[in-house]
Design a protein around this nucleic acid. Sequence first.
DNA 1: TAAAAAATAGGAATCATTCTTGTTTTTGCG
DNA 2: CGCAAAAACAAGAATGATTCCTATTTTTTA
Lengths: 132, 132
Amino acid sequence: MERRRNHSKKRDAILETIRSTKSHPSAEWVFEQLREDFPNLSLGTVYRNIAEFKESGEVMSVAVVDGIDRIDGDTSPHEHLVCTACGAVEDLELDLQTEAISKQISERCGAQASRIHLTAYGLCRCCLKKTN
Amino acid sequence: MERRRNHSKKRDAILETIRSTKSHPSAEWVFEQLREDFPNLSLGTVYRNIAEFKESGEVMSVAVVDGIDRIDGDTSPHEHLVCTACGAVEDLELDLQTEAISKQISERCGAQASRIHLTAYGLCRCCLKKTN
DNA sequence: TAAAAAATAGGAATCATTCTTGTTTTTGCG
DNA sequence: CGCAAAAACAAGAATGATTCCTATTTTTTA
């Protein structure tokens, strides 16, 4: 039951902004980035479009840091590090056997996993340096 | 700088309730469970104590499902399944090489991971049956 | 038992997110 | 083109989980 979507400059810009960063932004951050190009952009529009992107699978949320949802425009399988000091969310590329994990879940629990998220919590390189 | 903690029946009961379930409850759920034994219990007290348990490492949050924080009184290393249909959070026991993963993170990113969370999203056994 | 410290109840405040409504933009069509 | 229907939007109100505040109660200490 796909609803037809009209073209929208703002929606395109929102998706482009999300895709062009590796910062795993919040809705607020996306909004701030676009404020210059679209002075009358509404934060609600950013939230609404992000929700739609999530439904269509173009964007996924990867973490909730300090109560704020952080999203990723890269939906290919990869993992994340959440820095418990500065709140940064970074990409990881581990050799995670997601197939084997899904199989284990199916066999042991009778459940069907559609996505496997691995999130490491700790100190990013920057914050680790500062503790020395 | 550990603050001295007095003894408190309610705090003990809150921790016991959290530890005695595998449902990975919300604060609200814990509150409801204790309402019978402590008719004048305050939801704020549950939140405050959960926050303290998190700080002391006795409890950890394992997922945010539909905007609600879900906690676990079992802080031993294990993984979770979040059912995208009914919102249940279940324990998994996978053969995850967390040591090797932490090592990879350190070598590739220079970061120091203190916890590795693996969360699978999909259909639990019950909800999977219903889709047949 | 009395004062000091800690914990709580109750309710107000916060704040990310969602919803509502009136307006603007886009699209399809004559 | 010009116009009506559909979709998208701005602005701000509403929601709801969580946190904060303060007066009261419980626990500890001596």
